[in-house]
Design a protein around this nucleic acid. Structure first.
Lengths: 162, 162
DNA sequence: ATATTTTATGTGTATTTTACAATAATTGTG
DNA sequence: CACAATTATTGTAAAATACACATAAAATAT
């Protein structure tokens, strides 16, 4: 038997869906046509000003083609635009438009409200511990992932025991 | 500015997607045609033997129609079946088939492997704290949700300030 | 007691999210 | 230079999601 109620990954799953849904609805109700996925991309661009589709795919764990379509949508909404990377012409760089940048002032308060509601009644120290655990879990799983990927690429026949 | 790296909801989002993806791939690689969503339903049925679609929708935060389609798929895969609730003929009750029950012995070890990989290097006390925080956050957001829902149903014109 | 409302589920239809396979262009390497 | 690896995109298709509507049964009110 698996007592899944005491397992963090189970709650990460449930809560993850709930948060994505709530955030999307809050944006919609506020009159903003921004999906949770698009919000995640904007967060990256607000901090780093430019990201390649590959970067975004790696960070969000989506397939590159998924990110391409996501960017397509954001371009047609006027949130971001594609630029060239002079140092490597294979790459395209995604940057926020003025509109995309302006949204930071409008969307962040909405997100903060959701965060505040979620964290209500939780000890700040526990929040810190939780973030640390979640980061470690993410790192654990994603590095494992990369290792597999590399192995598969170098030795195709070398099937790793799962 | 929103330092999202220090915010649990952000990591819940990322990690939630990663976990769902990994779990689905592990099941697939093991030869099991079970999606992460189906896995979540099976978890419920293994513990409680029977759940209504409404229960499942409430617990997973999905729309009722989404659950209907999910159950449809699981029925056609032979994982679950629909039964009648004698005490309330509106309800249908979802139960695992023998095959669905047998899967517990096969899928749980796979999930345990993933869990172990994720939790690697994390203090058990921190895991406990993390679970507690995640549960509280889920409860905070879902109860807020229910409150809205109820208000909307009782007083349609009473729009709550968000 | 029956009329109305609420609850529970399912259908029709459509959108959104996702990604595998294949392609094209560019860079890195032996 | 020839060949492999990287980066992004398009073609295509699937899976997941849910809104509007329909149906039936139970709960409630009059």
């Amino acid at each position: 038997m698996l007592d899944y109620e005491t397992i963090p990954l189970h709650w990460v799953n449930r809560l993850g869906f709930l948060v994505r849904k709530e955030l999307g609805q809050l944006f919609m109700q506020g009159g903003y046509d921004v999906s949770p996925e698009e919000w995640a991309v904007l967060l990256l661009l607000w901090r780093d000003t430019s990201k390649t589709p590959g970067d975004i795919a790696a960070v969000t764990f989506r397939d590159r083609t998924t990110v391409t379509r996501l960017i397509d949508g954001m371009v047609s909404k006027g949130l971001v635009f594609r630029d060239m990377d002079p140092s490597d012409r294979r790459k395209s760089v995604v940057k926020a438009t003025d509109r995309g940048n302006d949204l930071e002032q409008e969307l962040v308060p909405i997100a903060r409200g959701l965060i505040a509601r979620a964290l209500n009644g939780i000890d700040p120290g526990d929040v810190e511990t939780t973030v640390r655990s979640l980061r470690t879990m993410t790192r654990n799983l994603s590095s494992e992932r990369d290792r597999h990927k590399t192995l598969q690429q170098t030795k195709e026949e070398d099937h790793v025991q799962l």
